[in-house]
Amino acid sequence: MIWEVFRQEAAGDYHTHCGNVHAPDREMAKQFAVIQHGRRKPAHSLWVVPQDEVAEVDEDEADFGGSTDKSYRWAMTYNDVEPAAREVADSEAEQAEAGADRGDS
């Protein structure tokens, strides 16, 4: 049986996928995950999840973010105003980065 492993580097961080292990049950999966994925890279906590329990939807079947123009829901669209406060500017910067990662122009 294959278990997907998610590692959290420090308290408060997100658990992110880092690989998988073969194991006959949950207890063994936790032990193997510790050995294989918690040994060198920083680890504060690990999750193991049966691979069968992970459902996937990929870009072939879904239009992530939609296929029509949705610029109205991005802060960058509203260019006639300057962000009112630092947290608004931070949010806009995060959105711009996400847009760039998505390959939006």
Partner: peptide, 27 residues
């Protein structure tokens, strides 16, 4: 409370649009 802080990451990510759109209406 970590789950609260994580929810705030996503909320703040989206709110920049809300506040700027609101300001755009005011403008």
């Amino acid at each position: 409370w970590e789950p609260y802080a994580h929810a705030m990451d996503k909320v703040c990510f989206e709110e920049g649009f809300h506040v700027k759109h609101g300001e755009d209406i005011l403008r």
